[in-house]
Amino acid sequence: MSTTKTPNLVARRTFLLAAAALSTQLIRTPMAKAETVKKPVNLNKKVNLDHFIADCIEANNEADAQMAVREVLAKAVSKPGALLNALGEPDKAGIQILHQSAALTIFNAMWTPQMNLLPHNHLMWANIGIYTGREDNILWRKNEHTIEAYGAEALFEGDVGTLGHDIVHSVTNPLLRFTGGIHIYGGDFFHTTRSEWDPETLDERPSDGPAIQAMFAAENERRAKK
């Protein structure tokens, strides 16, 4: 008996197989689309600043205080939108103090577009977390006569920078919009006499909280004249 299939039978089977495959695709497509639907973003979500500060204070009691506090800060800036909602959009250069004690200082630093801060030290560890914009750091070290640049670090939204006790750095906001960051220091930042260096001559001179705040005030005046 011949097993040769007629052209009509082959064509019919080919049609049925194609129809079955198409039917399967039509059933699966809506399911695939349903899996890719994104949940709406809650634009009103905010970081609870009181809880954040309390967590930082508790972490500062750990054996490695800087790394413990850094972990709390990293968690906060990992959702920069929620932190921005809690602090508000930066609209001027300034420092908003969130906590200040002999053991820990936390503040919100706001940089105007293309603002520069001259080289300075802290004489205590520092963690810096960016919640909007970008902060470029030039790292300096002391030599026989003054300081010299040896490195750089760019912090983008969601990044956390870690600075040791002896670090000297200068800061620039390279963007044409504001930058905001949470700065945390392992001591009383505003009542510690530190050093800053003239940006042109690199001559060393005293610096403290009022000197830093005066720089922010001068920046706002400069921007207002534009």
Rank of each mutant, 00 (worst) to 15 (best):
Lys45Trp: 08
Val47Asn: 10
Val47Pro: 01
Val47Ala: 08
Val47His: 10
Asn48Cys: 10
Asn48Arg: 08
Leu49Cys: 01
Leu49Gly: 04
Leu49Lys: 10
Asp50Asn: 14
His51Arg: 13
Phe52Ile: 03
Phe52Gln: 04
Phe52Thr: 03
Ile53Thr: 08
Ile53Glu: 04
Ile53Phe: 06
Ala54Ile: 02
Ala54Ser: 14
Ala54Phe: 07
Ala54Met: 05
Asp55Cys: 05
Asp55Trp: 05
Ile57Thr: 08
Ile57Leu: 10
Glu58Tyr: 05
Glu58Lys: 14
Glu58Leu: 07
Glu58Phe: 00
Ala59Ser: 08
Ala59Tyr: 07
Ala59Cys: 04
Ala59Asn: 06
Ala59Ile: 02
Ala59Phe: 04
Asn60Val: 02
Asn60Met: 09
Asn60Tyr: 09
Asn61Gln: 15
Asn61His: 15
Asn61Arg: 14
Asn61Lys: 15
Glu62Ala: 15
Glu62Ile: 00
Glu62Cys: 04
Ala63Lys: 15
Ala63Asn: 14
Asp64Met: 13
Asp64Gly: 07
Asp64Ile: 05
Ala65Gln: 12
Ala65Phe: 09
Gln66Lys: 11
Gln66Val: 04
Met67Ile: 01
Met67Glu: 15
Met67Val: 01
Met67Tyr: 12
Ala68Asp: 09
Ala68Cys: 08
Ala68Trp: 07
Val69Gly: 09
Val69Gln: 13
Arg70Met: 12
Arg70Val: 06
Arg70Leu: 13
Arg70Glu: 15
Arg70Ser: 13
Glu71Leu: 09
Glu71Gln: 13
Glu71Val: 02
Glu71Ser: 13
Glu71His: 08
Val72Asp: 09
Val72Glu: 12
Val72Met: 09
Val72Ala: 05
Leu73Phe: 09
Leu73Val: 14
Ala74Ser: 12
Ala74Lys: 11
Ala74Gln: 14
Ala74Pro: 00
Lys75Cys: 00
Lys75Val: 02
Lys75Trp: 03
Ala76Trp: 05
Ala76Leu: 00
Ala76Thr: 06
Val77Thr: 00
Val77Lys: 05
Val77Cys: 04
Val77Asp: 06
Val77Pro: 00
Ser78Asp: 08
Ser78Asn: 12
Lys79Arg: 09
Lys79Thr: 10
Lys79Val: 01
Pro80Arg: 06
Pro80Ser: 05
Pro80Gly: 05
Pro80Met: 07
Ala82Gly: 01
Ala82Cys: 00
Leu83Gln: 03
Leu83Asp: 06
Leu83Thr: 04
Leu83Gly: 02
Leu83Met: 13
Leu83Tyr: 03
